Amino acid sequence: MGGHNRDLGFPISDELTTPDGIGRYNVFEGGMIYWTPQDGAHPVSGTFLLQYTEQGFEKGLLGYPIGDPVAQDSFWQEQEFMGGKLTGVSQITKDLYWPIFAPVVGSSVLQAETFDDDEARENYQERVLPCIEYELPADTKLAAWRVPGKGMVTLDCRRFRTHMAPNPEVGGHPGHFANYPLTRKEWYDFLRCVSYTFPAEDLDRPGLGNCPQRN
């Protein structure tokens, strides 16, 4: 799999036995490798591991992995388990999410596919803070994420202001960040954390409080 420089990184556990006594597994910096006598060894990492964790690992309905991730297109992969298949990526990178900034001249793959005059680049100072201060239109796009089976999911200024909540100095809900306005680090932590939740989200029946908005 390419050793410690690839998806899994360094091992951080010894070989361990699963609770049912059938399988073995090792934990790595970026995921896990499971082994069973009938199906051999297979890695589980990236968004596959996020979904697998939500399902209860091998004790859940998915059971053990019985295959490695297989490319379905230029980005998404599919991995087979005893109880079904998952779609995802084996390594979580910034290719899963972007801060959006506009306008720009010219075009890019991202721009041409989804964002008209928007491009992906640093936007905390020029777009996020003005959004919070009501200096930008409500439909201004702030970020985008790739979601398996859904294409692109975007976050607009209106939704983020709701998530951010009113300035605590003037009363109301204190918001979902430690600072008001949120810091640059909090903004990028937010982008990354939202990308982690999407593999487990049902976007056709979203729960209350979901901040991203589907295109």
Rank of each mutant, 00 (worst) to 15 (best):
C157Y: 03
F81A: 01
L155C: 09
V128D: 00
E186C: 05
N167Y: 04
I92N: 06
W187H: 12
L62K: 11
Q51S: 10
Y188S: 09
Q79G: 03
R161N: 00
A71R: 09
A143L: 02
G46I: 06
P69G: 13
F160V: 08
P69K: 08
F48I: 15
P174I: 11
F115W: 12
V170H: 01
H163K: 06
I92C: 09
E135K: 15
F101L: 12
L50V: 13
Q125N: 13
R158V: 04
E135P: 08
F101E: 12
Y134S: 15
T87G: 04
L49P: 12
K85Y: 03
T93A: 11
L62R: 07
L96V: 12
K94V: 07
I100E: 05
C131Q: 05
V105Q: 13
H163G: 00
T162R: 10
A143K: 02
A165Q: 12
A120F: 02
E119C: 08
E80F: 00
A120Q: 02
Q91H: 13
L62A: 04
A165F: 01
R158T: 09
E135W: 05
F160W: 04
G83Y: 06
H163Q: 03
G60F: 05
D117Y: 04
E113N: 10
M82Q: 15
W76H: 11
Y64D: 07
P168S: 12
E78N: 07
D68G: 14
C131P: 03
L61Y: 10
K150H: 15
K150R: 15
A178M: 06
H173V: 14
R127Y: 05
K185A: 14
F81Q: 04
E78I: 14
T47G: 14
W187M: 13
S45I: 08
L50G: 07
W145H: 12
P137Q: 01
M82C: 03
T53K: 07
E186K: 02
Y180F: 15
L62G: 08
Y64P: 13
E58H: 15
A138E: 07
S107F: 08
R146K: 15
I92G: 02
L50M: 06
C131M: 02
Q79P: 07
E186S: 04
I92D: 03
S90E: 00
E80M: 04
P130S: 06
A178C: 01
A165C: 06
D95E: 14
D116W: 02
L62W: 02
T140M: 00
E113K: 07
R146T: 11
L110S: 15
R146W: 00
V70F: 09
I100C: 13
A138D: 13
K85H: 10
V89R: 03
R184C: 03
R159I: 05
G46P: 05
V44F: 00
P65Q: 11
F57P: 09
G84Q: 05
L110E: 10
V170I: 06
V44Q: 10
K85I: 13
C157D: 12
L50R: 07
W98M: 05
I132E: 02
Y188P: 03
V89Y: 04
K59T: 14
P181I: 02
E54I: 05
K85P: 02
T140A: 03
V147F: 11
E54F: 00
T93P: 10
G88W: 01
F75A: 04
T47V: 14
G84W: 02
G67D: 15
Q111P: 02
F81R: 06
L61N: 12
Q125I: 15
L142D: 08
V109K: 15
P181E: 03
L182H: 01
